[in-house]
């Protein structure tokens, strides 16, 4: 268990820094989570994070990296639906880092 502090509020996370309650998420918190991952959020980063939020909304699951790559390719085109592009944005793993910033739980099967 951990917490992140933002605007004087303290938000609960698990021991790896994923939000405990997905409902706590907002864009300020995402910014704070990104900082803890040393990621400077650009429009391209937000695009992936927003995609993950929508994906979770629909399927109630954080996708595995293979599935995320495929799904992004379908929605945003092949130049974005590939590991190289996603790893450039999220060097420590798109599923892991982007999910954390999106306020999602750690992807199932992510060791």
């Amino acid at each position: 268990m951990g917490t992140i502090s933002i605007n004087g509020k303290s938000i609960e996370t698990d021991e790896e820094g994923y939000l405990t309650n997905i409902g706590d998420w907002d864009r300020d918190i995402a910014g704070e989570l990104a900082k803890s991952e040393n990621i400077d959020m650009t429009e391209s980063h937000w695009e992936v994070v927003d995609f993950l939020r929508e994906y979770y909304q629909e399927y109630q699951i954080a996708p595995a990296v293979r599935v995320l790559t495929k799904a992004i390719g379908k929605k945003l085109g092949p130049e974005k639906g590939n590991s190289k592009y996603l790893y450039e944005l999220f060097p420590y793993g798109p599923a892991k880092q982007a999910c954390k910033i999106a306020g999602l739980p750690k992807p199932t099967g992510c060791i």
Binding site: E58, Y59, Q60, I61, P63, A64, V67, K70, A71
Partner: peptide, 14 residues
């Protein structure tokens, strides 16, 4: 409890 029924619709992508 969490409603996990929508996740069955994600299986195709897996």
């Amino acid at each position: 409890q969490k409603n996990f029924s929508p996740t069955y619709r994600a299986l195709e992508m897996y």
